[in-house]
Amino acid sequence: MFKYQSTKSTGSKSWVIQRVTGVALVILMIGHYILMHYNPDSGHTYGAVLNRMSYSWYRIIDISFLILGMYHGLNGVWGIFRDYKLKTWQNYTVIALLLIFGLAFVAWGISIIFSIPYIHTTSAH
């Protein structure tokens, strides 16, 4: 598969994107941890989730976190497979599986986020 690749496509672009998304994920992860583990309720009760999800900007951050995390993770897995000289059909199978599972779970995650109603509950934390 890579035998016929031109020098223009050495994978360096995906390497750079992996660095950029990695830095973004570290920043998002810090916010995620503070919000989710500020107290035991903040990450584990429906009311707290409703409260956060009543802000559209929070939904946007959540969805970008999901997409960035999935891209970074699956690109990393693909990077592992690239270390072991697989046959062309094996490479295509791996890419297809990663794409199908990645897209399906991102779609699932986004649909979960959109299924949460916009209600601001004052009783929750």
Binding site: L66, W108, I112, I116
Partner: peptide
């Protein structure tokens, strides 16, 4: 993602 999916089924 799987473990958060009950969010669609309510409180």
């Amino acid at each position: 993602i799987y473990s958060l999916s009950p969010l669609t089924q309510g409180e």
